[in-house]
Simulated scan of single mutants.
Amino acid sequence: RTWQCGTVQLDFQMPLNFDLEYVDADGTKKRPIMLHRVCFGSIERFIGILIEHFAGKFPTWLAPVQVKALPVSEKSRDYAHEVCAKLEEAGIRVVCDDRDEKIGYKIREARSIDRVPYMLILGEKEVEAGNISVRDRSNETVQMSVDEFVVKVLEEIKTRA
């Protein structure tokens, strides 16, 4: 798709609204015409281009929610909140989905609707081991420590990878 971002507009209304006039070389008063030029067009158009380009799957550095923590059950809910607090402290945008829904539903929603770059699936095994299960957009799930994950995500954000 080809996008046309920049705009150049002739504005006849603004000089009228502000009652602008100038004196021409022949001494008569005339109304000017304003010219507007913008490189990106409107900010709304630019955001629309970004959303369409990435199909809503923004890179981690740009995603409004970079990580979504998904506790499997009520037993892992407190641990999920602890993990989220560590991520927030590191400056990562995270949301904890602690609703009483099935984990499959939460995963599908995070992948298909929210389109977050990373999901943390946190069950009883993760609570006991003190680590996290990280699922990225390729649907691969990897076990790692919270500190390792923080370093990985911060590096990805810093390099805009």
Rank of each mutant, 00 (worst) to 15 (best):
T28I: 13
D26P: 09
D24S: 09
F58A: 04
D24Y: 05
K30A: 07
G48D: 14
V23F: 06
K57I: 01
E52Q: 08
T28H: 14
E52D: 10
G41E: 03
I49F: 11
I47E: 01
F58P: 02
R45V: 09
G56Q: 00
V38R: 10
E44F: 15
I47C: 01
R31Q: 11
C39S: 09
F54T: 01
E52T: 04
G56P: 00
K57P: 00
D24E: 07
D26T: 14
L50H: 01
L50A: 06
I51Y: 09
I43K: 01
V23Y: 05
L50M: 06
H36W: 13
F46D: 03
R37G: 12
I33T: 04
L35W: 15
I49Y: 10
D26N: 15
G56D: 00
I33N: 06
L35S: 09
I51G: 02
H53T: 07
F54V: 00
L35Q: 13
H36K: 14
R37H: 04
A25S: 10
R31T: 14
C39V: 14
R37C: 04
T28L: 13
G27A: 14
H36T: 12
F58N: 03
I51V: 08
K30I: 11
F58H: 05
E52C: 02
P32Y: 08
I47W: 03
C39F: 13
G27M: 09
I47H: 02
I43N: 03
T28S: 15
K29I: 07
R31A: 08
R37A: 07
I47D: 01
R31Y: 09
I51L: 10
I49L: 12
C39E: 13
D24V: 09
A25C: 09
M34Q: 10
F54N: 00
I43D: 05
G56V: 00
G48S: 14
H53Y: 04
R45K: 12
F46I: 03
K29E: 07
A55D: 11
P32Q: 02
L35M: 11
P32E: 04
G27F: 14
L50V: 08
I49C: 05
V38N: 10
F46G: 03
E52Y: 04
L35C: 11
A55S: 12
G48I: 05
F58L: 11
G41V: 05
G56S: 00
I47K: 05
I51Q: 07
V23M: 03
F54Y: 06
R37Y: 12
G41A: 09
C39R: 15
L50Y: 01
F40D: 04
V23S: 01
L35I: 15
V38T: 15
S42A: 11
P32N: 01
H36S: 15
M34L: 11
V23P: 02
K30S: 12
F58I: 03
F40N: 03
V38C: 10
A55W: 07
R45E: 15
I49Q: 06
E44S: 15
G56M: 00
I47F: 02
A55R: 11
L35R: 12
H53C: 01
R31W: 04
S42F: 11
